[in-house]
Write a protein that binds this DNA or RNA. Structure first.
Lengths: 121, 121
DNA sequence: AAGTTTGTGCTACCTTGCCAGTACAAGTAG
DNA sequence: CTACTTGTACTGGCAAGGTAGCACAAACTT
């Protein structure tokens, strides 16, 4: 069910993390309010708050109490190569009709395989 | 914590799903026994069993009661393009020092972005 | 046929995490 | 300075899912 709508703090955090590191949310750009996010994803405010807290702890966002939560200046975007290849993979996956979750599982598998076997080809 | 050791039925299932669909576990190849998997990941047997059950329900594995669980014949591997691009992404991500979970988050972000904006260029 | 392996099916307990609603703190805007 | 916005904190309740341990069924092995 992670392919559709986030339903937990971790999933919500992951969603924003992806938006930020992929550049879809730029430097200084503002995130929805905690209350708004809670409504959007139909979760309790405490859950949305927890997600934001995690993001701040990672240094991805800056939160000043009444000014809202914004993407932290600098050091947010992942290297362009990664983004491009992620886009390429997404395209291939969608084109082939492979479910997102399956693609993720495959990615994890090859990631760990490279870890274990330095010989690749 | 999904980057290290699986700790729930879903995560364990996802791990084997990735191994199968990526071709790391080939047709007819045998998976560890439920009891073994339970030990490997330090979970209860019921949890490992649940994971295997899910895989069978997806048609990825075939289980005959005392013969163990094996990868279902045919229809297991994902299209080669997807695997190759997943490998390329993994390589780029590891090379750039981007955490696996972040790469996954990015992938999800661009996946949904493509869903929303059919214009890709 | 006998014994062993292996997946399944319980039961009761317990931990984790989300929910709901509210109250509070710390800024911003008029 | 006053009012509003927005993130934080807290309480008790609750549902989902994992734990442990065992009993059982079916099929492989000898």
């Amino acid at each position: 069910m992670t392919g559709t709508t986030p339903s937990s703090a971790d999933e919500i955090a992951a969603l924003f993390r992806g938006a930020i590191r992929s550049g879809r949310l730029g430097d200084g750009e503002r995130l929805p309010t905690v209350r708004q996010t809670a409504k959007d994803f139909d979760v309790a405010q405490a859950t949305a708050a927890k997600a934001y807290k995690a993001l701040e702890h990672e240094g991805l966002v800056v939160t000043r109490t009444a000014a809202g939560t914004r993407v932290a200046p600098g050091a947010s975007r992942a290297p362009q190569v990664v983004i491009e290849r992620a886009r390429a993979l997404a395209e291939a996956g969608e084109g082939a009709g492979v479910p997102l979750d399956d693609v993720v599982a495959i990615l994890r598998a090859v990631w760990m395989a490279d870890d274990a076997e330095p010989e690749s080809h």
